[in-house]
Amino acid sequence: MTKYTVVVAESQTLFRDMITNFVEDMDEFRVIGTLKNGQEVINFIKEKEVRPYLVLLDIHMPIMDGLECARQLKNIYPNIKVVLLSAYDDEESIETVLSVAADGYILKSSGLEEFKDTLRFIIDGKFVAPPQKLVHYFSERLESLLKLERESSLHYIKEQFNNRKDLNNREWQIIQLMKKGWTNRMIAEQLGISEGTVKNYLSIIYKKLEIKNRVELLQILSDMTG
């Protein structure tokens, strides 16, 4: 049976030994390196010319922490699986893990079976994280997306402008797309018109709204969300 190679990086000897023992106890894995910080991981991979299948990194380590190490590993060796370990169950953990393109996040307070199951999920190509955190994270993101979608809807925008009758359908479309942060070129491509035509429409919109430029229109649109 081919075993997946693993490197463990943890600054505390006790935790490093425990994690190593947990991994070695699994038939699927073989630990090929136990290190104390992220810089040692980078050096180990370069000097030994090895490509571990999985690297387990404590987030909080001296010299180079797990986040920076994960960032560098994914940049240099994108195929290496990287899982971050943390003792802290804070609100920013999932977003931080995603920002460095890590493959997962495990709390040190996890049970042994949960820890082992997580590593097996990694083999299957799944992103892993504490279920409660994932639910909370994605529910927040969904709520934000729904809010953005609602506030970018034509109905909502018209309401904020008190359903002005002096703006025609094309002008409302352009205002809506500007609300979404689109550039003149993007708007032109979406509506099948030239950038020059978009600029002409904007000049008319500015005049009708009694404003001078794009900055003032964007400020009005920004103020809609409070």
Rank of each mutant, 00 (worst) to 15 (best):
I80S: 10
K126S: 09
G111E: 00
G66K: 14
F121L: 14
P52I: 06
S11V: 12
K147P: 00
L154I: 11
I45S: 13
T34H: 08
A9Q: 14
I123H: 14
R214H: 03
Y77D: 02
Q39F: 12
I175W: 08
L14N: 08
V23T: 04
D124V: 08
A188Y: 15
K81A: 03
R170L: 06
I220C: 03
N213K: 09
L145T: 09
M61T: 12
E159Q: 04
Q39H: 15
Q219W: 01
Q132R: 12
N163Q: 02
G111K: 03
N168A: 01
I220D: 02
S222E: 05
Q12W: 10
K133Y: 13
E24K: 09
D166F: 01
Q190T: 15
I59P: 11
W172R: 00
L119H: 08
D17Q: 14
L112F: 00
G33F: 10
S99K: 07
L154G: 07
W182A: 15
T2D: 04
Y88D: 06
S152G: 09
L167S: 00
L54G: 13
S110W: 10
V82S: 14
V55C: 11
K158P: 05
L217W: 06
V41G: 06
R141Y: 05
L154H: 06
S153C: 04
P78M: 08
F115D: 15
E210P: 03
